[in-house]
Amino acid sequence: METVTRSTPPPVLERSEVFLIGSLRVEGLEASYGGRQILKGITMDIPAGAVTAVIGPSGCGKSTFVRCLNRLHEVVPGARVSGRVLLEGQDIYAPGVDPVVVRRRIGMVFQRPNPFPTMTIYQNVAAGLRVNGWDRRRTAEAVERSLRMAALWDEVKDRLHQPATGLSGGQQQRLCIARALAVEPDVLLMDEPTSALDPVSTLKIEELLIELRQRFTLVVVTHNMQQAARVADRTAFLLDGELVEFGPTAELFTMPRDRRTEDYITGRFG
């Protein structure tokens, strides 16, 4: 575990000793579900303004891992979390921290597109703004801005007030990305965002990720190693709830330090 932290110093921290907006540090994160331990003590720094991919065979805990980063794991009955997750140096699990505030700053996109079926396209994007009391003008601006960011604006600008369920699967997923972006989070977590989509939609979303990384800290869970190689600056390899290796993507794929990483990326298991 020490090798991991040593090998990946977030450049900014080292330079200035000041936390960059959206920087995350995970310390000794453990999570269990129904008494079964899923994450067995994970420590890593997630750099701000970059794409971090989390890969690993199914059941390795990568989904649980991102769900711990915005305190969503704990809403499931029987789920437990311990350890620390520091957002800009502040522990989001510290007593007194409201998960609502955490999730307001750390957005999430899910495996399957999950727009709210009773709302229009516009209302979907504005859902997070509505609860925060944004006025009409600011909301309208934010809706357009985030739909543009999600590369969906041109496709839906003429039917903003139609039900979101009329969109295709790929469009729905980009709508969900726009919905998450609208509240202007600092971190965006994505749990296998393309696993339910066709190749064309997948490509669009991958292009989007590369564009978005300038403005957000992105954590992308994927079961697809090519995807990680295409979009991620850094990649973490999880196995059985443990962080096996974490480093620059190119390095991890070309010169893995750990035997298990090598086995996994060469397709020997998983």
């Binding site: 915005n70 969503l72 809403v75 499931v76 998960p99 609502v100 505030v101 999730r103 307001r104 700053r105 957005g107 999430m108 899910f110 399957r112 999950n114 709210f116 009773t118 859902a127 997070g128 509505r130 609860v131 925060n132 969900c176 919905r179 998450a180 509240v183």
Partner: peptide, 21 residues
């Protein structure tokens, strides 16, 4: 469940999630 989680992940409270979603 994903409907509730989608709203919670936007920073909604439990009551807002119930009322709006």
């Amino acid at each position: 469940r994903h409907q509730r989680e989608a709203m919670l992940a936007l920073g909604a409270t439990r009551w807002e999630t119930i009322r709006l979603v």
